[in-house]
């Protein structure tokens, strides 16, 4: 049975890009969320093996959503999606329990390497 990912990003373009990368690698896309509030709902509902979490999103930020998810499920595997210049936010997220991070623009190998590491 293939593994399941929840993709959280407010930009449709980014969600599509990640969707393609994961599908290509044989993953099942459990679902998508476009902001932090939706992320928690979807997480509880779908129980994915992995969450990719954008940092800057409207309403509830990725760091807040990360904390929410880890509160309900401390073992959740969340990796952050960041852009250049967001290093301090990435570090904050890591301190709060994010397992790893990927940096935009995403490249397939980079994403899969990180995924392999945090789950392998």
């Amino acid at each position: 049975m293939s593994q399941r990912v929840l993709i959280v990003d407010d930009a449709l373009f980014m969600r599509n890009l990640l969707r393609d990368i994961f599908s290509d690698a044989g993953w099942e896309i459990a679902g998508e969320a476009a902001d932090g509030n939706e992320a928690l709902q979807k997480f509880q509902q779908l129980q994915p093996d992995l969450v990719t979490m954008d940092i800057v999103m409207p309403q509830r930020s990725g760091i807040d959503a990360l904390q929410d998810i880890l509160t309900v499920s401390p073992a959740a595997v969340v990796i952050m999606c960041s852009a250049l210049g967001q290093e301090s936010m990435v570090m904050e997220a890591i301190q709060h329990g994010a397992r790893d991070f990927i940096v935009k623009p995403f490249q397939q190998e980079q994403v899969l390497e990180v995924v392999q590491r945090v789950l392998g």
């Binding site: 960041s82 290093e87 990435v90 570090m91 890591i94 991070f101 940096v103």
Partner: peptide, 13 residues
């Protein structure tokens, strides 16, 4: 490497 400090932090963790 992008975000080297964050990378080191992950490794340290």
């Amino acid at each position: 490497v992008a975000s080297p400090a964050a990378r080191l932090l992950v490794i340290l963790r």
